[in-house]
Amino acid sequence: MSSTPDSARGGTATLPRPEVIRHPDVGDGAAMWRVARDSRRLDLNPPYAYLLWARDFAATSLVAEVDGEVGGFVSGFRRPEAPGTLMVWQIAVDESCRGRGLAGQLLDELARRTGAHTLETTITEGNPASIRLFESFARRQGAGHHVTDLFGAEHFPGEGDWQPELLHRITPLRGTG
């Protein structure tokens, strides 16, 4: 899945921080879906998927509350074959909350809370803002950032205009040994 940062800088700004960064619950699923939909960059899953994500993957996902509303989220999971690896599925920030460095704050906090050794995500070449976000995250972590092919156009169904997904692997994350 593509990832969407909150700004072209991809780094944290000196603007006000969100009121709360916390793990989601089922009550956040609809807001997560809305933020993803409104980003116009993510592959939008059905609302049901965000409800399940908020229930079953809450420990590896975060929401940011701004003015009492979900202003952004990051969803992830630990890879079953590599439990030290956190796979970031989606990251999105509401348009009203962009420019605060919120996407970077969500990634930093998720890495801290999960204690993961490695972070992976996939990004298409046509999403330079997300590429900059994860490059900035790697620099803040003092980690290596390696990009390789993961899913080519031939892996996707014939319908649609699917872009190849590149695997971004950032390791070792700070504080994980």
Rank of each mutant, 00 (worst) to 15 (best):
L107C: 03
T85D: 04
M87L: 07
Q105S: 13
L173P: 08
S130D: 00
R78G: 00
F134T: 00
T114V: 11
R55V: 00
Q90C: 05
R41Y: 08
I91R: 10
A116C: 15
F73V: 03
M32I: 09
R78D: 00
D161S: 13
S2L: 06
V66Q: 13
G76T: 01
L52Y: 04
Y48V: 04
S75P: 03
T122C: 06
R113M: 08
H117N: 11
L86K: 04
G144K: 13
D56M: 04
R79F: 04
R78S: 07
W33P: 01
L150V: 05
Q90H: 14
D94I: 08
Q163W: 07
D43H: 11
R34V: 06
V74W: 09
R139G: 10
H168I: 00
E159R: 12
L42I: 04
M32K: 07
D94L: 12
V26K: 05
A116N: 03
G76R: 02
P46M: 01
R79L: 14
Q90G: 02
T176Y: 08
A13G: 11
S7D: 14
H146A: 14
P83G: 03
G160E: 14
P24T: 03
P47E: 06
G99V: 11
S130W: 02
R9I: 08
R34G: 03
T4N: 05
F151R: 09
G27Q: 12
P128G: 01
R78A: 15
W33V: 03
P172T: 15
T176N: 09
V70Q: 05
G104C: 09
R34N: 02
L107F: 11
S96A: 15
Y48S: 06
F137L: 02
L44I: 13
R140V: 15
E109P: 08
V74Y: 15
P83N: 05
T176W: 08
F57H: 15
P47K: 07
A13V: 08
W33G: 01
E154L: 09
S3A: 07
T12H: 11
G126C: 01
A8I: 07
D67G: 14
R174S: 13
R112S: 12
F77T: 07
R113C: 07
V70G: 02
H145T: 02
T14G: 12
L119H: 05
G76Y: 03
H23Q: 12
T14I: 09
A143E: 14
A8F: 06
T118V: 13
F57R: 14
W89T: 03
P24Q: 09
S61H: 10
D38N: 09
N45A: 10
G160Y: 14
E120K: 05
H146Y: 09
G99P: 09
E125K: 14
A30P: 01
E125D: 14
E159W: 15
V20L: 13
R100M: 15
E95M: 10
V20R: 14
P83I: 03
A13C: 06
S7H: 11
G68P: 06
L110Q: 07
D161T: 11
R55K: 12
E81A: 10
P157W: 15
A36D: 00
T118P: 02
G126Y: 05
D67P: 05
G158T: 12
L110V: 06
T122N: 05
